[in-house]
């Protein structure tokens, strides 16, 4: 009845159960955090703007991104993946989301940042609809936990537009 195997089994089962409950509670505790992040993005320059040989418009921007995401961090946060996407509508597509820049923040100390950069990924349209196009810049973040549920949210910034002519 109380053999070694029986006791070992009971101990392991109990340990795994406790570990699972602790993981679940750590994940649930994330729900009590109500973050208040801020972000501001300026388009400093249109470096160039052209139609590629395959007919798609492509533009290169210089951006100034400043954000304070430190309130997103809890004790269960492993990292925050943050990226800036241009979002716009064209006659062909109801939604276009093009990621321009991204970064990984691994600690609360680095979550308040300021960066001056050109777009890291190509800002290319499916077609040639970018001349004079109004677009939103959206700062998305994706919280990756040490364990449990992942969270994502965004700040939409409106009122950006591209020039009428290629340059």
């Amino acid at each position: 009845m109380h053999s070694f195997g029986y006791r070992a089994n009971a101990v392991v089962t109990f340990a795994v159960t406790i570990l699972a409950v602790m993981c679940g509670m750590a994940s649930l505790s994330d729900n009590f955090n109500s973050p208040s992040p801020t972000a501001d993005v300026k388009v400093l320059n249109i470096n160039w703007f052209q139609k590629q040989p395959n007919g798609n418009d492509e533009v290169s921007l210089t951006l100034n991104i400043s954000a304070d995401l430190s309130s997103l961090f809890t004790w269960n946060t492993k990292q925050v993946f943050v990226f800036l996407a241009a979002e716009y509508e064209t006659p062909q597509n109801a939604l276009n989301q093009v990621s321009l820049w991204d970064g990984i923040i691994q600690s609360k100390e680095h979550a308040k940042f300021w960066i001056h950069t050109t777009n890291k990924y190509r800002f290319t349209d499916q077609g040639n609809n970018l001349r004079g196009k109004d677009f939103n810049l959206t700062l998305h973040w994706h919280i990756m936990p040490k364990t449990g549920k992942m969270f994502a949210d965004k700040i939409v910034m409106t009122g950006y537009s591209l020039p009428e002519e290629y340059r």
Binding site: F83, A94, N96, Q97, V98, S99, Y121, H142, A152
Partner: peptide, 26 residues
């Protein structure tokens, strides 16, 4: 964009876990 998806590519058996960076919806 930003979601982590698991996808299968034609001709590959093992699914890949990566992040979406561009979306164009008709």
């Amino acid at each position: 964009a930003g979601e982590i998806v698991v996808f299968n590519v034609d001709g590959r058996e093992i699914p890949i876990v990566h992040r979406v960076i561009k979306v164009h919806e008709r």
